[in-house]
Amino acid sequence: MTNLSMTVKKNIPYIAISVLILALLAAVPFFSKPYTVVLLKNILMFAALTLSWALFSGPTGYISLATAAFYGVGIYTAAYLGKVLPLPVMVLCGGLASFLLALIIGAITLRLRGIYFAIFTLSSVELIKQVLHWFEITVLGTRGRPVVKISNTTVYYVVLLIVVLLMVTTYFLKRSRYGLAMSSIGSCEDAAAHIGINVTWVKVLTFALSSFFIGLTGATTATGLIYIDSHIAFDLNYSFFPTLMAIFGGIGNVFGPVIGAAVFSYLREILITRFPYAYMIIFGAVMILTILYLPNGIIGLVQTIKDKVLGGKDATASSRKVN
């Protein structure tokens, strides 16, 4: 794999910066206040959800709004298995449960395109939520469950690990043969299918892989919730936020979703405390402005500035007609 080592070489500055940031993040619990750890944990959680979302929806162009379903499955796994299994095994179970659910949802919904896929994935969250609610009330005769509490610092490290895993997976997947197949689906699915790519299989498998990471994240962060029920676990905000964060940050490269999640969740934290009633309005306005003026997100803006400063050839190449 010579071209792999070449891409790694070319990206040494990025890798160096990433390792530095990672070291800083790993050191945070040793010298900062508990509040900072909780804040960063939340940011990392959203980064994990956004990266997972972008892993599938970025290259394929299928807008999934099922994130909350897989996140909720992770949370329920923690609620049911948290007492009986050690943390790493329980978290893996959450990932696998989401993976399996995604295979099913994917096989049913991925034949739909565009807005129909988005709406069906959104409905799947509501369906699972209501079925679970009904099942708990009528069959189990309970509502909700307590979740075993695990220290914030431990959760922080596990979520950090998930984010790193996601970034590495995204990076290498994008440069692999499989990644090319994924982006060809986003580019022109009919053409992809007719040159030998099993588009159904690629879509379902990528959807499941993305959901695996969402499940891991749900199972990990659920341990901070104390009590959960179907309405807490399958909150539709967990479908919308990662999508918005990814669009806000840009899905052009692996840093976009992370930056989007960081800025967005920090903003949310501040707005909730300062303007508890108006925060969703401000949020909506920021989103509309982003979509109107930064169609490629923050990362897209950075790229444009970089091209302008360097007098980049890339910026003009795509607008030129070539014979």
Binding site: S187, H194, I195, G196
Partner: peptide, 30 residues
């Protein structure tokens, strides 16, 4: 269609279906 292509039967489209963001080389490489 992916199975039929792998059996050695391939087609082009009346309205062109290429991968517009990819380079010419990448299109053919696919």
């Amino acid at each position: 269609p992916n199975y039929i292509c792998r059996k050695g039967l391939v087609r082009t489209f009346q309205t062109v279906k290429i991968f517009p963001e990819m380079t010419v080389f990448q299109n053919v490489l696919m």
